[in-house]
Design a protein around this nucleic acid. Structure first.
Lengths: 191, 191, 191, 191
DNA sequence: AATGAATGAGCATTCATTCAT
DNA sequence: TATGAATGAATGCTCATTCAT
């Protein structure tokens, strides 16, 4: 096999890692699965990312950035005439819609096929892997910072927490997301 | 070596599994680690729990029960003169205090040395392991049911969601738990 | 492939490990090479010896025992009329004769195809692997104890040291062992 | 990054290799570990030393030279009024003192921070690596030549052998170095 | 002259699970 | 009923070496 010069390879490995996490979860992420998904030799993944932690951080940080951009681009965060709770409830719906593959619903545009599950994979992994904690923290903070443009920072933090909790329960109980309920409770938090 | 009849063995295996998850996370749970922790032969763990999923469900259901009992026993849920938000914020503090261990503070009595991290491992692992979903769902429902004695069921559900979100963020960002903030936001949810 | 019940397997793995060390040195000892040599699956070697250190200790200790028996059986150690230095010089010759394969000389009877090189492999490995130190120490002590039946313990120790040094130099400089030189120098040590 | 002309680089790589062997043993010597220790790119090590054997030979020959110089500089080898056995026993003590490191005693001046362990790694590795044999042989011969200035060549060779054996046993058994014992036995060898 | 990238082979180890006893 | 033995697959990771630039 020819030794190809492939300057994009590092990026392709990251992209493959994101797809693998999306499909099989972080538990399914291994040098081998990523190499197969990216179509590169095994050694290539360990060359570019000496440890799995490194690869996970790179992949999840990139996913974070895509997510943050998509969120920030939503009109609601610029337009004060829109109802914030309403917008957030809608955001959650979109987010959850992009989630578990078995819904048959294609992921919403702009999420880069990254739904709510990826976030929770990140949370789960960060619980035991200190290397991922900063990435998890960024995830929260980026979203809170975006929300803080429409409310105070402390409330923004709580909104993120409630959104997290609602999401988690929706994912765990099978996905029946109740937008009206979410809207109502988010609204209560906003002073 | 005599093969003793050991009716406690099944229980000892479950207890060992809880300790293992608490110390090393779900990723560290294997027939081998549990057998070593319980001091029983490897074959014994596969005999009593044919698959790891079975063992995880048993272990985590038991952890749930211990938690539920401890929660239900709190006076606040029977005594309407106590401030609910205050009590819940206190509950979170206790729970998180039993957590990551580096605080040096021994876990609160009654948690069965099971802290918040263990429960979130459960929650989050359930995302990818259907076998755990019902156990995770029970967790939410039991707590919500307890809270519903002091408020309406829908609010109770949201309180659980917010508590989940606050907990998760505290665990992941390594930040201090801010009881006053939790109290304030929980109070906003209560109509 | 049928799962055979093979109660001798552990021993066969040890024997294979000794052959591997003899042929390729300790650097060539791996779970894989041993499994191939023993004709057992890879997993079998790790089942019986969880770590390579364990396997190395078992293999080298067994080699030690074979060596010690062979040495102790030599008449010289019981018969005070024989010249000790002479006997030891002869022992070294035999020992070195069993050594490096390229001599074409078949290993002396009784060494179990274990020559001087194996001893030095052991020394080399023990230098960096604490787990092997006790085995290396036993090697020295067993020989010294045998010699101590014909002289005092301190002299015995020095005889072993000189034998070691002579051996080492013979192996390193290509094997021209000079028995007369060895005899003379060993004799000088005996008071 | 500018590609500086760096005439010292080859030397820096050799120095790094010596440090690596000293710290992790020959088994820990790889192009990668050396590159990291020397602070040079991986490709640089393979450029200057096409194979690991080349690097090992260069590194260990340099270690030899440092040792030989230090030994030759000792007064004892020129001053016939000093007791040779006594001096050699002292030399061994110094050498071993620079060794395993857990003594807390800093290596004696003049050894180039190369202790006895490094040299024995060389000796013993040469058993299986023909490329190292000449270097190991030089070691013996240089020391024997220095000793031959105070005694006959054959005795000198035996003194080196005994010193080797004593050293080896001290390193392997972890026992204390007994200078009086060494002195006595070395003295017995001197006619 | 110098080096970052690449890669296939190999490593020790862990594992869930099966099965003979 | 229990369990020690067995095993194939997989894991993260290191490596010497080659090669295009």
């Amino acid at each position: 096999m020819p030794r190809r010069y492939d300057p994009e390879r590092r990026q392709r490995i990251i992209d493959a890692a994101i797809r693998v996490v999306g499909e099989k979860g972080i538990a399914g992420l291994s040098h081998r699965t990523v190499a197969a998904e990216a179509g590169v030799p095994l050694g290539s993944t360990t060359y570019h990312f000496a440890t799995l932690d490194e690869l996970m951080v790179a992949a999840l940080r990139q996913a974070n950035e895509g997510f943050a951009k998509a969120v920030a681009a939503r009109a609601a965060f610029q337009d004060p005439t829109l109802d914030l709770a309403d917008e957030l409830a809608g955001l959650l719906g979109e987010w959850l819609g992009g989630g578990r593959g078995e819904t048959g619903v294609p992921p919403a545009e702009g999420w880069g096929s990254v739904g709510a599950e990826l976030e929770y994979e990140l949370y789960l992994a960060a619980l035991r892997r200190p290397a991922l904690r900063p990435v998890a923290a960024e995830w929260c903070q980026d979203l809170a910072a975006a929300l803080a443009e429409r409310t105070d920072p402390v409330t923004a933090r709580a909104l993120v927490a409630l959104m997290d909790g609602i999401c988690l329960q929706a994912l765990l109980t099978g996905g029946e997301y109740d937008a009206a309920y979410a809207r109502e409770m988010l609204a209560r938090l906003i002073p």
